[in-house]
């Protein structure tokens, strides 16, 4: 579903991603771990199309499962040629490490606008208000988000935990095919962590893939990944199964970094 080939990107004068290769298939969960500053958020921003970052080399291909069972190869998209909103409408979703506040715009209005833009892209008519409200109610329950939050301004005055839950709530409503979670676990207490992980697990399906970026292993106790990758200084230096996360937890990142250098 997602194929990253030798991706190099950064800001002028500073290469942050130094040749990333990653293959993600539908149904899989990939965890990307790494120390602070290793380029995890940059990778998620580049996948989502943030303009500040320049891609100097490499390719990113996205092949969402085709709705009518046509071969998935037929819908292979070059993400680097698409605007951020086109990527989103095609099913790329980023749960932000730092969700942004939009004063005066209610969460509900924001989501309704988003969902209808996505539907328009799929040549579907706008959603009926009553169907939309039903959907909101159902998805709110999924992340145990209080009803009042939906009516408040987007992320404004939300606690850190509420913001993260709101990201997962939006993800649940928009039903993307590729879900990128950037440190959704940071700043969450253990209950909130379980709620978020539960929400994600319920959204797992054979047609959907997850890239879960995290600094700590504890999230991966709840969301069991199929693959774990270690990102360090802009490169994936080690990949493995879920046990790799435990090993990292026990030995720290330095263990691999040193090994990598020898």
């Amino acid at each position: 579903m997602l194929s990253i080939k030798n991706l190099r990107a950064g800001i002028p004068g500073n290469e942050i991603l130094k040749g990333i290769n990653l293959e993600v298939k539908a149904g899989e969960v990939h965890a990307i771990m790494g120390p602070n500053g290793s380029g995890k958020s940059t990778l998620s921003s580049v996948l989502a199309g943030k303009e500040n970052y320049q891609v100097t080399e490499g390719e990113i291909w996205f092949s969402p499962p085709s709705p009518r069972g046509e071969g998935s190869g037929m819908r292979r998209k070059n993400l680097l040629e698409m605007s951020p909103e086109e990527r989103a409408r095609e099913g790329v979703f980023l749960a932000f490490q730092y969700p942004v506040e939009i004063p005066g715009v209610s969460n509900i209005n924001f989501l309704k606008t988003a969902i209808n833009e996505i539907r328009l892209h799929r040549k579907q008519p706008p959603m009926e208000t009553k169907d939309f409200l039903k959907l909101i109610k159902e998805k709110q329950a999924l992340v145990e988000l209080q009803g009042t939050l939906a009516n408040r301004s987007v992320n404004e005055g939300f606690s850190g935990g509420e913001k993260k839950r709101n990201e997962i709530f939006q993800m649940a409503v928009l039903e993307p095919t590729l879900c990128i979670l950037d440190e959704t676990d940071s700043g969450l207490d253990i209950d909130a962590l379980r709620i978020v992980a539960n929400g994600v697990n319920k959204l797992r399906s054979k047609d959907r893939a997850f890239v879960v970026i995290t600094h700590y292993q504890r999230l991966l106790d709840h969301i069991i990944p199929d693959f774990v990758h270690v990102l360090s200084n802009g490169k994936i230096i080690k990949s493995g199964g879920k046990e790799l996360a435990l090993e990292l937890e026990a030995k720290g990142y330095d263990w691999i970094k040193e090994k990598d250098q020898t």
Partner: peptide
């Protein structure tokens, strides 16, 4: 903010619409 615009775009809302949304929010009172 660029960040606000990018956040909207990431949810499928183009720049022009995003500005409308943000400005209307700003004027809501």
């Amino acid at each position: 903010g660029e960040d606000q615009l990018f956040y909207c775009q990431q949810r499928g809302i183009d720049k022009e619409k995003a500005i409308g949304l943000i400005v209307n929010g700003y004027c809501r009172e």
